[in-house]
């Protein structure tokens, strides 16, 4: 296990912003940490990095206590937007960070290359576009070849092209076996990249599983005529416009029932709920 937390909790006043979260990130996977804005993602991540002390509960990062040099040196992170000196060039900012991390200055060029910023490395950070700033943040996180990369909403505020760039970057890192904890409030953005996801809402971890498991049971879509009659005939079916949805796997039995009752069956097919729907259901954000 790269990260484990046990009933990790942070209270501000009497409000639990992170509420008994127990999650785990495994070596080599891309873990999607999902939740709507204000769910407690950043606060959880801050606790994993020792920036914020938990009110109760515990966390281990690479077997170490969060925030200790042993843990931090093996983790690269980008939390809620990059923090760099505006008057320094991208390259100088990375040099400063490399010196703090005790990393050879030679790694700076490699990191710049990895995020495709070599051309703009000499420009002041202040002049960077948001996408370039975020990429520089990833470059800084990559210094020192960390075992775990924590990226907190790295696409926040980016235009679609910037988002696609960032996704490609994470995908490329994942392909090299990099363990990544990636937070997002946009499910669509992580569902293709992530191996497993944890869903947090109102400070509580409401699900943790593979993307497949999260998608859950198959639902059948039925188009039939007359629809009203089918609705009555099929238990637990719900109407969605001019079709019915039912949580049922035996399509054959279902069709026989309808036909026997003189209902025309026009279409029966499994309906894969999108993760977006599952997500909205879980987080009550619909």
């Amino acid at each position: 296990m790269i990260v484990t937390t046990e009933k990790l909790t942070k209270r501000y006043g009497d409000r639990a912003v992170v509420d008994e979260v127990s999650l785990s990130v495994r070596r080599g996977e891309v873990y999607g940490f999902l939740g709507p804005n204000g769910a407690g993602k950043t606060t959880t991540i801050r606790m994993l990095l020792g920036l914020v002390k938990p009110t109760s509960g515990a966390a281990r990062v690479l077997g170490e206590a969060p925030g200790t040099p042993k843990a931090l040196l093996k983790v690269g992170s980008l939390i809620e937007g990059p923090g760099f000196y505006p008057y320094l060039s991208g390259r100088d900012n990375l040099r400063v960070h490399a010196a703090r991390r005790g990393v050879r200055a030679g790694e700076v060029e490699a990191a710049l290359e990895q995020v495709d910023l070599v051309g703009a490395a000499g420009e002041r950070f202040r002049r960077y576009s948001l996408g370039m700033k975020q990429r520089l943040g990833v470059a800084a996180a990559l210094l020192g070849q960390p075992e775990l990369l924590i990226l907190d909403e790295p696409t926040n505020g980016l235009d679609p092209a910037g988002m696609a760039d960032m996704r490609d970057l994470v995908r490329a890192l994942a392909a090299q076996g990099q363990t990544v904890l990636l937070s997002s409030h946009l499910l669509g953005e992580v569902e293709e990249i992530c191996d497993r996801v944890g869903v947090i809402s109102g400070g509580k971890l409401v699900a943790e599983s593979t993307v497949e498991q999260l998608r859950g049971d198959t639902v059948l879509l039925i188009r039939a005529d007359p629809l009203e009659k089918a609705l009555v005939l099929i238990e637990n079916s719900t109407r969605h416009g001019d079709v019915l949805h039912v949580r049922e796997t035996d399509a054959g039995a279902l069709v026989r029932t309808l036909v026997a009752a003189d209902v025309d069956v026009q279409e029966v097919r499994p309906l894969r709920r999108t993760l977006e729907e599952v997500f909205f259901e879980m987080t009550g954000a619909a």
Binding site: L49, G50, L51, P69, L72, F84, H97, R100, A140, G144
Partner: peptide
């Protein structure tokens, strides 16, 4: 304001 303390305190050293 720049967020550089955050970067500094997560870099490694105590």
């Amino acid at each position: 304001g720049w967020g550089t303390w955050k970067t500094t305190l997560t870099a490694g050293p105590r």
